[in-house]
Design a protein around this nucleic acid. Sequence first.
DNA 1: GCTCATACTTAGCAGACTGCCT
DNA 2: AGGCAGTCTGCTAAGTATGAGC
Length: 645
Amino acid sequence: MVAFLFADTQKYKDKYKDKEHKHKDHKKDKEREKLKHGNSPPHVKSEPDDFYHSPKHEKSLKREREVADGKKKVKKEPEEKWKWWEEERYTDGVKWKFLEHKGPVFAPPYEPLPSNVKFYYDGKHMKLSPQAEEVATFFAKMLDHEYTTKDIFRKNFFKDWKKEMTSEERSKITDLKKCNFTEMSDYFKAQAEARKSKTKEDKLKIKEENERMLQEYGFCVMDNHKERIANFRIEPPGLFRGRGDHPKMGMLKRRIRPEDIIINCSKDSKHPVPPPGRKWKEVRHDNKVTWLVSWTENIQGSIKYIMLNPSSRIKGEKDWQKYETARRLKKCVDRIRNQYREDWKSKEMRIRQRAVALYFIDKLALRAGNEKEEGETADTVGCCSLRVEHIKLYPENDGQEFVVEFDFLGKDSIRYYNKVPVEKRVFKNLQLFMENKEPDDDLFDRLNTSILNKHLQELMDGLTAKVFRTYNASITLQQQLKELTNVNCGDDLLMLSLNVNHLNIVSVVKPFILVEGHSKCFEKPWFMFQIDAKRDQLADAKRELKSAKADAKVRRDEKSKKAVETKKKAVQRIEEQLMKLEVQATDREENKQIALGTSKLNYLDPRISVAWCKKMGIPIEKIYNKTQREKFAWAIDMAEEDYEF
DNA sequence: GCTCATACTTAGCAGACTGCCT
DNA sequence: AGGCAGTCTGCTAAGTATGAGC
C-alpha cells in the first residue's frame, strides 16, 4: 500500500526542503494541543467506544456543542475547521438535533432532439413521441458500448422502451434490429465534441454555475454546523447497467419526480420546497437516521439516499468508531483464533462450518456473503454463500499438502482465484461439508451471515465479519511501516521506500486482491510492450547525452553546456518513468491498482499513516490528496507519531 | 428461524481536470 | 496549442449489517 504514497516522487523532492519548516510548525501545534487538553492522554484521545457507554447526558452534550460552535462563529471565518472529534458524541441512536437543507436537485428535463436528427425504423424515417424518443436517446448514447450487443441488455431495453411508446409506435416498432439510432448517436458525439472545444469563458460560466448550485444545494446545517452533502443531485434517468452478468441490464431507470421523494429534516427547520406546483411524497423528521432525502429506485426496488460527505461529523465519527472496533479486536484476536480452531473439532456440524468460514474470513479476507435473491442480481458470492462448485480440494498440489482452490465471482463480479494450503483439520472438514452435495449446493449449508455475526457478537461487542478486514489490513500496514522505518533511510528515503515498499504492498493488500487467474495473459503483453518502448527511449536518451557531452567538450560554449543539462534531465526523467512502469507492471499483474486505493480509503486506520508521516517528517500531502485529507481530518489532527493501532 | 425492509459502507469506473511535454 | 498520462471526483452499483414482524 505504501508505494502509491510516493506516486509523485518528483514533486516530493521539490518540496522536501520545506520538510524541516513544516515539521516545526507541526510541533508548535502539538504543544498548543497539549496545553489545551491538559491531562488528556497524549496520543489516543478518548475513544468513541468509551463515549458510547459514557454516562453523560444529552443536555451537557448539547451545551458543549453550542459553546464550541458559538466560539467558532464569533471568532473566525468558516475557514476555521470544526473539530467535531473533540466533542461529546450522541448516545442511543440519536444522530442529530437539528437538520436543515434545501432538498435535492432534480435531473434536467428532457430536451427533444432537433428535427433534423432522425430515427429510422426499417429504413424509414419515423418521428417518435417525446417519451419514446427520450428512451431511444438513452440507447443511442450507449451504442458504442459492447453491452448494447448483448441479448439480455437488448431484450430488457426493448421491453421497457415499448412501455414508453404510444400504442401506434408500439404496433409499428416490433423489432429492435430494425431500429437505426445512428443519427442520434452521431448528434450526441458532436455535442460532446462541441462541449470540449468550448471557449474558456463558456467553460468558466459552466463552472461558475456548478459552483452556484453547490453553494445553494450542496450543504446542509446539522446541529449548528454547515456540512457538505455527498450527492445532492438525483440520479438522472437512463438505462441500467449492472456489473458483471446482470439479469436486469438494459432496463429503464425511470426519472425521479418530487412525488417520489421523502424529505427528512428537523421539524423546526426551514423545510425544502418542492418545485412549483409539485409535492413531496412525504416530509418526515427522523433524527435516528442520517439521510436527508430518499426515494425508491425502480430496478431492484431498493431505497436510495442523499447523505453527507465523508468529511462530515456524522460519517467521520462512524469511521473512527470502525477503527476503534478493529483495535478492540486486536486485543482479543488470539482468543478468537484459538476458539475457532477448537471449533473445527466440534461434534456439531453447524459449529464446524461456522469455524471454517470464520477462518476463511480471517485468513483470506473473504467478505461475509449475504444471500441474494436469485435472478435479481449477478450471481456472485461471499464466504457464507460459497457453493460446492467454487472450491476444489487437492490433498497434494505442487509439493504442498491440503490445498484449497477458490474460484468464484465476488463483489462487483470480480473473480477471486486463489490456491491456498490449509490446515489438515480444515481440509477434512471441507471434505465433510462437500459430501453428497451437488455443485450448486451451499458449501456451508448450516450457516448464514446472521448466524455468523450473532456468534461474533458474542465473542466481542461490535464484532462482525468485516471487522476482520479492517483489523488485518491495518495491523499489517503498521507492521510493514515499522519494518520500513528500521531501515536507515537518509537522503534516499524515497527511492528506498519505493523499492522496499513494493514488497510490502503485496503483503499488506494481498488478502484484498482478487487474483485474476488467466485474464492476466491479456494485459501482460501490452505492459511489456510499454516497458520495452520506455527502455528503448532510455537508451536513445543516453546516447544523445553522450554525444552532447562529447560535443560540449569540443566546443566549450554555454549553449552546448546547456544542451548537456537538458539531456541529463531527460535521462533522469525517463529512468523514473521506467521504474514506475516496472513497479506498476508487477502490481497490475497481481491486480492491485484499485484495491490499493480502496483499502487506503476504507480499511487502513489513517492514524497509522499519519503517525508515520509525522515521525518521518513527511508532509501529509504526500500521502493524502485534498479529499482524503478532508475525510481523515480527525486522524491528521489527533494522531501523534507514537500512535499505536 | 425466516423474510423483508432499511440504512449504511464499500467499490469500480468514466469523465473531468491538471500538469507536463513537444 | 495540442496531446497525453496520471490523478481526482462524481456517480451509483453492490455489498454488509440489523431489526421488525411473522
